[in-house]
């Protein structure tokens, strides 16, 4: 049985639950998990129950990396580090917005831990508000599409590049829709000494507005359209990419989700979609995906 036990309160088709399960599949029992506040934290630990089959701590929204670095320092100081892996698993808001400073500090200090960002591209736990992980033109409850707006006007923050700039020995992107690839990368990240990072694309059926049975399908479309490139970076250099055969137009990905539906009904939507296509084209060129 998975170390993330069944019976938790995740939605049917929940990307976070998949991510949590894959992470624990990858690292096994000898780990300590730190979660910031978020869906994964809330739905796995309704007191007095817990879905975690490994030691787990949640402190606050913005401090998971600092807490993880404290856990690491404690184990080192007490001579208990052995092979224990310290894993932080946070959402996009906890990672890219409110927790960014603590992450920067922990990576700069070089703690031996792995930070996993489960990026479902908005504050889903609090009601689908925009984060800096929200892609351009996604409609959220705080960046809604309306007569005068196509939704979120800003590009997604390039978090893996920020972490790579800290000199991290290993940074990778992954997707819950490609489980073996994700598990391999998490395993690799955990095995490498020092602060490592895996940024996991995680389609949220509730927030992105698609059927819970289509989480994997939507996740694959993100990769197949080159909107979510899968790559690995070692010491700041891209060392591996997942090539795309028969790349699909971004419309196929956008159409599958309610958060982009206004782009297909609003006047001028087609022109705006071209901007999203340009992002995908840039990814193809930059990472050599074809």
């Amino acid at each position: 049985m998975s170390l993330l036990k069944p019976g938790h309160r995740g939605c049917a088709g929940c990307c976070d639950a998949l991510a949590g399960k894959f992470v624990l599949d990858a690292v096994g029992e000898d780990c300590i998990v730190v979660s910031p506040t978020g869906c994964l934290e809330v739905f796995t630990t309704p007191y007095p129950e817990s879905a975690w089959g490994v030691p787990w701590i949640h402190s606050l929204f913005e401090n998971a990396a600092a807490v993880a670095s404290g856990v690491e320092a404690a184990l080192k100081a007490m001579g208990k580090m052995n092979n224990t892996k310290i894993i932080a698993i946070g959402g996009d808001g906890a990672t890219m917005d409110i927790g960014l400073q603590a992450i920067s500090g922990a990576f700069e200090r070089g703690h031996d831990f792995t930070y996993i960002c489960v990026d479902n591209e908005a504050y889903m736990n609090t009601g689908i508000q925009r984060s800096s992980g929200t892609p351009m033109y996604a409609s959220t409850t705080t960046s809604p599409a309306g007569k005068a707006s196509f939704g979120n006007p800003l590009n997604k923050k390039n978090m893996p590049a920020i972490i790579a700039a800290h000199g991290s020995p290993y940074v990778a992107t992954a997707s819950v829709a490609y489980a073996p690839d994700m598990i391999r990368k998490v395993k690799k990240a955990a095995a490498i000494k020092g602060p490592t990072y895996v940024h996991v694309h995680a389609p949220c059926c509730t927030g992105w507005k698609f059927e819970g049975s289509k989480t994997i399908e939507v996740g694959r479309l993100a990769v197949e359209t080159a909107l979510w490139p899968l790559y690995e970076m070692e010491k700041g250099e891209v060392t591996g990419v997942r090539k795309i055969k028969n790349r699909k137009p971004v419309e196929e990905y956008l159409k599958a989700q309610g958060r982009f539906k206004h782009l297909f009904t609003m006047e001028g939507g087609a022109e705006e979609i071209k901007k999203i296509q340009a992002t995908a084209d840039w990814n193809v060129k930059h990472f050599g995906l074809e």
Binding site: I57, L60, N63, V67, G70, A73, A77, A102
Partner: peptide
């Protein structure tokens, strides 16, 4: 002991939350 030069007082106390939960005197 492990002496941590953290990047803010917020992280100073947060790191100790993790360390204390791991069984350290902090």
């Amino acid at each position: 002991c492990e002496y941590m030069n953290v990047e803010s007082e917020f992280s100073a106390i947060s790191a100790l939350i993790g360390a204390s939960a791991a069984g350290a005197r902090t």
